[in-house]
Design a protein around this nucleic acid. Sequence first.
DNA 1: TAGATTGTTAATCGATTAACAATC
DNA 2: TAGATTGTTAATCGATTAACAATC
Lengths: 242, 242
Amino acid sequence: MQSSKSNKTDAAQKQVVSSAVINRLPRYFRYLRELLRAGKTRISSGELAKMMNLTAPQIRQDLNCFGGFGQQGYGYNVRYLYTKISDILGAAEGYRAIIIGAGNLGRALVRTPMFAARGVSTIAMFDVDKNVIGCNFSGVNVYSMDELESFCDENGVDIAILTLPKTSAKEVTERLSTSCVRGIWNFTGIELGTYEHVKIVNVHLGDSLMTLCYEIKAASDSDDIAGSDIDEKNNETDGTNK
Amino acid sequence: MQSSKSNKTDAAQKQVVSSAVINRLPRYFRYLRELLRAGKTRISSGELAKMMNLTAPQIRQDLNCFGGFGQQGYGYNVRYLYTKISDILGAAEGYRAIIIGAGNLGRALVRTPMFAARGVSTIAMFDVDKNVIGCNFSGVNVYSMDELESFCDENGVDIAILTLPKTSAKEVTERLSTSCVRGIWNFTGIELGTYEHVKIVNVHLGDSLMTLCYEIKAASDSDDIAGSDIDEKNNETDGTNK
DNA sequence: TAGATTGTTAATCGATTAACAATC
DNA sequence: TAGATTGTTAATCGATTAACAATC
């Protein structure tokens, strides 16, 4: 059923893929999973574009950065495309993650199915609080921070999730930078600097909150100016945080 | 000390400000707050550009969408610029927020200084669990979901923060859509649809996690290809989630 | 075959960067 | 005044959209 022709994912990518494209991939992943769940087997770029508030040629351009995943006259096979996008995003790598900071945020995260859905397994939590060390949340044990390095070495940890107080974030990052950890998912809100062997992705919840405040303000501002349509065009976004 | 000349924030903006610019504003806000904290009184576009991994003309262009905040030969007054950006983003509006869902995530959020730093006050939490209703977290009371509409009406709630299970998200959103609430900050990971009078900003933590997975994978891929510098250029970002 | 829809090139649009006159 | 740095226009670059031939 699937085109056996030129599959560019196996070969090196033609050119550097722009970050505009990369940033859309997790959204494709999300919508495709939803389609899969809904039992849809095929989809055209036009249909998907309508769902996602994009244009059909944009979707075709994006996907063609990685390979010819569709079929002329047919469209895209949902399951096939989903697995391809998963591969591109590294969801098939089976990354192992630890959560550093077993407070409310850490506990909230460990319970979500988000990790499993993306091929990431949360194998441990760490904390400094003796009352929390030894506890178990959703089947994940809390270890002492003293065991951080040895645990990482022994278990081949790929990702560290920082849900600890700002004050100790920098110090912990330094410790991680010399471990086998390859990525840090940073919820502390502070900048951690750059490290050669560790990728850092920051979650700036405050930025997101401010975006909401801005949109509320902009909406009421344009209400005030009777007949004005300033910024109304922004309303046609789907509210996704870019 | 400050230029008394053309201040465009008071008047209507010349033209629609692009979303590329809007999305950078919370970052400016963050860096300026940091500069303020560090006691810096003035900064040039060049200095700020270096800090933020942008270019100087880009910063000047961005800021000039809203007004002439700087002074030739001097640069920008940090405090003045900070208050201007705050105003543009609506941090001076004094928005009132409620947190719907007093689980771990809700409790983690209510404790952060994020809200106060952005002029938002969290005035209540809501939950369906009788064991949680009546509790108090960081000085914020948990109310029954039955009281949602009446509380919003009586207290002029602007923002609802959804930290409840996916399953009830849609129903609660419907209820909110006919209230005075003007913005929803959605942590549930599902799409809530669009409403005429309510702005929705989604926090897709899963997307952010996938970005990290992609970067880890891309880094190890380019290691594999000896001598190749594919995608290495992406390393010069500051890791900020766009 | 006819219809549909992709993959891909060319055209357009928008955002970033360069340059420089204005001016503090 | 001289030096510095903004505000702003013009040039470049990159991303999106339009168009269409290829082909399932």
